[in-house]
Write a protein that binds this DNA or RNA. Sequence first.
DNA 1: CGTTAAGCGAGACGGTACGTCTTGTCTTAGT
DNA 2: ACTAAGACAAGACGTACCGTCTCGCTTAACG
Lengths: 220, 220, 220, 220
Amino acid sequence: MVQKSTQQHQSRPPAPSPTKPAPNSTRRSERSRRAIYEAALELVVELGYPKTTIEGIAARAGVGKQTIYRWWSSKADVLLEAFLDLFAQASREAGAEPYVIPDTGDLAADIKTVLRATVDQLKDPRYAAPSRALAAEGLVDEALGRRCAATLMEPSLQLYADRLHAAQEAGEVRPDIDPRIALEFFVSPLAQRWLQYTGPISYEYVDTLVDYALHGLAPR
Amino acid sequence: MVQKSTQQHQSRPPAPSPTKPAPNSTRRSERSRRAIYEAALELVVELGYPKTTIEGIAARAGVGKQTIYRWWSSKADVLLEAFLDLFAQASREAGAEPYVIPDTGDLAADIKTVLRATVDQLKDPRYAAPSRALAAEGLVDEALGRRCAATLMEPSLQLYADRLHAAQEAGEVRPDIDPRIALEFFVSPLAQRWLQYTGPISYEYVDTLVDYALHGLAPR
Amino acid sequence: MVQKSTQQHQSRPPAPSPTKPAPNSTRRSERSRRAIYEAALELVVELGYPKTTIEGIAARAGVGKQTIYRWWSSKADVLLEAFLDLFAQASREAGAEPYVIPDTGDLAADIKTVLRATVDQLKDPRYAAPSRALAAEGLVDEALGRRCAATLMEPSLQLYADRLHAAQEAGEVRPDIDPRIALEFFVSPLAQRWLQYTGPISYEYVDTLVDYALHGLAPR
Amino acid sequence: MVQKSTQQHQSRPPAPSPTKPAPNSTRRSERSRRAIYEAALELVVELGYPKTTIEGIAARAGVGKQTIYRWWSSKADVLLEAFLDLFAQASREAGAEPYVIPDTGDLAADIKTVLRATVDQLKDPRYAAPSRALAAEGLVDEALGRRCAATLMEPSLQLYADRLHAAQEAGEVRPDIDPRIALEFFVSPLAQRWLQYTGPISYEYVDTLVDYALHGLAPR
DNA sequence: CGTTAAGCGAGACGGTACGTCTTGTCTTAGT
DNA sequence: ACTAAGACAAGACGTACCGTCTCGCTTAACG
């Protein structure tokens, strides 16, 4: 799924714009692309996103500026692809199935497991710095924001939706619930605390979220 | 003795930072401050945050750049104060109690009322543009992010916490629920959909959030 | 003569411009004036003329900027008066007749004596720095340049003219010579070497100038 | 000699300063350089040197500021090169031998011819304004002053020295005279009158200078 | 297997905005 | 009323990047 949407972005065979010569990707230097990914991610972690410049990325990657402008349209664009690449790479290294929500038959436990892993990842600056940077840029550039949502978040969110659907069939969740809304009870509060510093993040916190969400706030 | 100690002309007892002369705020031009607020908000709405520059704000406000740098440390800093001022002004104009969650005895209805008003506000570009800009900058600048959370969001969030506490005492919410976590079921999903384009926003949507949150996802 | 032209500048009793309130010089702070002179001269020696700012002078003199703008029209104006004051002060301290060309009956010897003293003075940074600064500003601002010529140089030049005139009467100089031109053979080459780095300055050099000037370049 | 010192300045093979990347002059835009020269000279004539700004030069030349800062170190530096270029260009246009002192066998007449041409040039604002500006800046910035002396004045002065030397061999000038000093009797008085407004400039004046200098002030 | 056109590194270019500095005016207290 | 202090509008400074545009030089694809 992730791969599909990524392909969608990278392949522009029909060359829709006649003004641009449409670079020939068969001649593209793989070496440069990797170096640019690495440099971009490193600089965002080291300097923060605003101090990361295209000139800086080019310099660290040992690459001409034009090589960046030829293949990407903006700093955020570079970073988005670099981040997707990081994910793909991490997944490949982790082997097996990296991003699947387990289904042990106990929805609460399964969701907690995944959320705890997410908490760990949010605290790793290697992931946190680029994520925040992309989220920030996406807030202000709607097109980028939608692309981030579609490529970075949508695949994961769909996993939640799928797991909730399975839970509905198992009778663990009410059949009238819309999984696309229900999943937000798990991910949105965590996302907001992380992005906007509205509260601390911990295993205990995500466990509480799951319990509250499943059983409701009202007495029964 | 007296003379000798007077020679010590360099003693600045409070003076925490020796580098900045700390401008005298009693002489500050109220006229300039208001003009800067207005110009900043207008430009963010018209051009978007990234194309809003300090030079542009100064020019539109009819103010020297130094007057901005004297009183604020960054573009985001200006915008935060301008936005707070906009809120304060709006509140004053609205008169009475502008930001209180009603307590009719029906928690669900009250929360829905407030969330529907929030939905309307999120769609008003006068508020939306600066909010997104500040949120974006806060993502990448932790100090600013914490200030935004504390000054812009915390007051509203506390109102939810208070209303939930009242509902607990009225028996509408389980007594073991932490209101500071519970409130996130109402605001975080909405915030995320708005900020990250993960879904559409509507009255129906927020109503659904309230129902799901109060009664839980699991069958009872 | 010097006093006359100086007075001409400082006292503006008829108040020609009705827009300016024409400061009342009787209330003027003598203390501030002296402090400004000292600060200006020190800063020009320490930092050079271009890095000497009105703000810097005010700060070192412990004086408000307005006090400078009230009484002088420009940085060069301050420096010119400060320099004239330095001269007047030095003359008073030196007592007797400070600036007279001796008349021993030997024109060559007398001129050499004075020129050697001038060489010494040109090498004293206390005089050299402000002189160069004023000369520089005068090159580019004709009004100032004429005032410098009239107040700083003219008195000295007239002394040469007078001495040459006396020499004419004594038969040491041809009667058809114009002293106002002849004196330039003594002062201009020295001035140019000093101002424009076109050659070294020494006692021997000025002695040579005098000999060449008196007896001509052509064989006799 | 002149060439040697010029070379010394231009060729810096050992690259003494590691901080500056030293721009690659083979890629330099000739078009920009000429436009900058023209703009600088025009602005100095129109506005005067102090009101000529680097930003103004860049704007009129249709050039980025960095293009100026990349190749020159200061406003005066630009102007010096622009002025040298103006000279070189004028010489090329004048064809033949532009700057040679004639040798008709009559030293007095030859020098008068050249000085009269100089008087004309000093009154042409196209030359006068930049000259004064450079002289002014050179007074206050010794490095620049020496460069002006070496590049602008030295070549001309050497022509006088050469002509005087020839006159010595022809018996028109005493053999014990140092031409490097003697020439100052012709150029320095004129320079001072021009630079410092110490007197009027005319053909008659320079003729008088030549006569006085050759035959001396003393009766014979 | 050599030609050739592309991508490549490098970096100069016209620009824009930065944050700082200074100018000359104006305002506020203090004496 | 003049002063010390300093905020103000204005605008130049020199720097950092932007995104575009050549330059030669690899280097892969096709003829």
